[in-house]
Simulated scan of single mutants.
Amino acid sequence: MAVRLFIDGAAGTTGLEIRERLLGRGEFDLIVLDDAQRKDEAARRDALHAADIAILCLPDEAAKEAVKLAEGSGTRIIDASSAHRVAEGWTYGFPELIGHEAIANAQFVSNPGCYPTGFLALVAPLVRAGLLPADFPYTVNAVSGYSGGGNALIDRFEADPTISFRAYGLALGHKHLPEMQAYARLARPPVFSPSVIPAHRGMVVDVPLALGAMPDAPQIEAMRETLAAFYFAGPVIAVHGPHEAPGELLINADSAPHDGMELFVFANSDGSEARLIARLDNLGKGASGAAIQNLNIMCGLPETTGLRLG
């Protein structure tokens, strides 16, 4: 019997990409609201209660309202917003980090943010292994395609071809910081410097490390080997060895959708400085691809079904 699935916010960027990944999949019976019903509270409540699983592709406050509308239904929920990422009763939807079984058994799953996905993939396993200290003052430099900002930012970039770079979050206190700190098990949040470029999709997350300033500086190869071992059995995250490291990392303006993630460890000759770098699609493993991966796990299906990993 097909799983009844409702995407609340299906007309947004994340929702549309989720629907594309579900095309031709007979395991799911999609509940669809027409344009007149999409913002009708009663119609949304009925859809949320009729679904076995709902995926919320909404702004934070609207996602919280949707969860209230679903109360009493027993519907399982995947929330792609940042509303519930560190909320009590919610399972963080990063299966490689949290564990597949936790997601398989959860009623409420919160998708990670796109930037935190790269940061946590790099830092969390190394802190867990004791190679990186939990109380170090970490920084994160990251650049994303403009689709990560939703329809409003997409319109701004596409309407004005003179915009070549947009640095934002200059007041600090970015909404992604709580999940970065919590799931990396850090004593304090990192200093986060996000930016956007005129490419529709793609993301590079860069964590520079002044290893010489650490009391017990880890060896570069130990960090690389720890990451490779941590993700060895997974089909979505690839850790590149020293001989696979490119001379530069690129984001192409016309990149195709991709649901995997690549991790790199770069270092200077004496090992006193390093850069941990993740490259991913902000709409793939950073959003819609992650939602599909979590959906598959929750339904007992192979986790890569419908993902674009080629």
Rank of each mutant, 00 (worst) to 15 (best):
A134Y: 13
R188S: 13
V205E: 12
V204Y: 05
G169Q: 01
V196D: 04
V204D: 03
D135R: 08
L172C: 01
G130F: 02
V205Q: 09
V140C: 05
P189R: 11
H176C: 08
L126C: 08
H200G: 03
L170K: 11
P190A: 07
R185C: 02
R188Y: 09
M180E: 15
A199L: 02
A142F: 15
L153H: 10
A199G: 01
M180G: 08
L177P: 02
E158C: 09
S164E: 08
Q181I: 06
L177Q: 06
R166V: 06
V127G: 03
P194I: 03
Y138E: 09
F136H: 14
M203A: 08
A171S: 04
K175F: 00
V196K: 06
P178W: 06
A129Y: 11
P133H: 15
N151C: 10
E179Y: 14
L170Y: 09
G150Y: 08
L126Y: 14
S164K: 15
Y168N: 05
M180Q: 15
I154H: 10
D155T: 15
T139A: 11
E179R: 09
L126D: 13
R188M: 15
R166P: 00
R156K: 12
A129W: 07
N151Y: 08
A187N: 10
P189S: 12
A182T: 11
G149C: 09
P198R: 13
G149Y: 13
G149L: 12
M203D: 02
P137G: 04
R188W: 14
R128K: 05
A142L: 11
A182F: 10
H176L: 10
P198W: 05
S144T: 02
E158I: 08
A187V: 15
A199E: 01
N141P: 00
A167K: 12
F157E: 14
F165R: 11
E179F: 15
M203H: 04
Y146A: 02
S195I: 08
S193G: 03
G149R: 12
G130K: 05
S164H: 13
I154T: 12
A134G: 14
Q181N: 07
A142N: 12
Y168P: 00
R166D: 05
T139L: 03
F136L: 13
L126I: 10
S193A: 06
L186A: 10
G148Y: 04
V204G: 03
A187S: 10
A171Y: 00
